[in-house]
């Protein structure tokens, strides 16, 4: 079964089969990263543009390594060096890039829906590498891949996602993916960070972290970025850590083989204590490793699926 789509804009539109295809394909690509020669010729001659309108080291680097290990030509354009600073619109930027015949454009943007705008006007496949508070599909896929490595299957797992759900694209993509694959998803955070009607996405809302951790198999901590927000959300980071910070003591309520995940970069002492981040339950670095494999799979599948794309 090929991935029957031109673009990867989010997890929400994906079927369970498509998600499983990506995760299974990623297994094969993970092996490549363990070789001496970490490169296969799969996407030789393909041009990939990493178009980042927001600062990002992790995701951009991960895509770049993924592209390079598949032998694609991958180049980075970041907002500070692009024409964006000269006031060019996203549509104009996209049309100019498109004129150079890229095969894939990976976009990170602060505005929800920006990748959709791009996908509508570009022949190239568009991959959403994070759009505002909307989605970050490859993050959710790599999280699921990591969970499967530790827990074999996702169905039936209790997963707690803790923090600023309102502004988190990672939370949204993970909620979609984990509920599709049959996990029990709990979200917890300050009431000001819980978006309205989130229960309709199939999650349970908790306002106390201990209750959310009870019997949990997986804990995902989200990054708190109070410095970038309206201060009315949270009185202080100190109070946040006291109420929702992840500490080894709190983790005792979870199952014995709980895993701790974090999309990075970490705010040590804000959402997670160093003891927890560096402790035995943490799989944070494994997430980073798997990110490359999952992104290789996505690049491969979107290119392989290209033969059906033209009509859309």
């Amino acid at each position: 079964m090929p991935l029957k789509r031109k673009d990867l804009l989010g997890i929400e539109p994906l079927s369970v089969e498509e998600i499983n295809l990506i995760l299974n394909t990623a297994k094969a690509f993970k092996e490549v990263s363990t070789r001496d020669v970490k490169k296969v010729p799969t996407l030789r001659g393909k041009t990939i543009i990493n178009l980042f309108f927001e600062p990002s080291t992790r995701t951009r680097t991960s895509f770049e390594i993924a592209g390079k290990r598949l032998s694609a030509d991958i180049l980075n354009i970041s907002a500070s060096t692009s024409s964006v600073v000269k006031g060019e619109t996203l549509v104009d930027t996209a049309r100019n890039l498109e004129a150079m015949y890229p095969d894939i454009i990976i976009i990170r943007h602060s505005r929800a829906g920006a990748p959709h705008l791009l996908a509508n006007i570009c022949r190239a496949s568009v991959i959403n590498a994070g759009d505002g508070a909307h989605e970050h599909p490859t993050q959710a896929l790599l999280d699921a891949f990591t969970i499967k490595e530790y827990k074999k299957q996702i169905k039936g797992l209790k997963v707690a996602i803790i923090g600023d759900i309102l502004h988190s694209r990672v939370a949204r993509s993970n909620i979609h993916l984990l509920t599709k694959l049959g996990a029990e998803v709990r979200i917890a955070g300050p009431a000001t960070y819980i978006p309205v009607e989130i229960e309709k996405l199939g999650v349970k809302v908790y306002h106390h972290i201990d209750a959310a951790f009870e019997g949990c198999d997986v804990v995902m901590m989200l990054r708190i970025q109070r410095e970038r927000q309206d201060k009315s959300y949270l009185p202080s980071l100190r109070e946040y850590f006291n109420l929702f910070g992840l500490t080894p003591e709190r983790l005792r309520r979870a199952t014995k083989d709980v895993i701790i995940m974090h999309p990075g970069p970490l705010n040590r002492g804000v959402e997670i204590s160093s003891e927890a981040a560096d402790g035995p339950y943490s799989v944070i670095l494994e997430q980073v490793t798997n990110g490359v494999a999952v992104r290789m799979a996505v690049l491969y599948l979107l290119m392989g699926g290209k033969y059906e794309e033209v009509v859309s």
Partner: peptide, 23 residues
């Protein structure tokens, strides 16, 4: 050995090969 990643017909018309692990 899974040779899918090394195929020369990746984007040719036709069903796309599933990549499996090389072991």
């Amino acid at each position: 050995l899974d040779i899918t990643m090394y195929r020369d017909d990746l984007t040719a018309v036709g069903p796309q090969p599933i990549v499996r692990q090389t072991n």
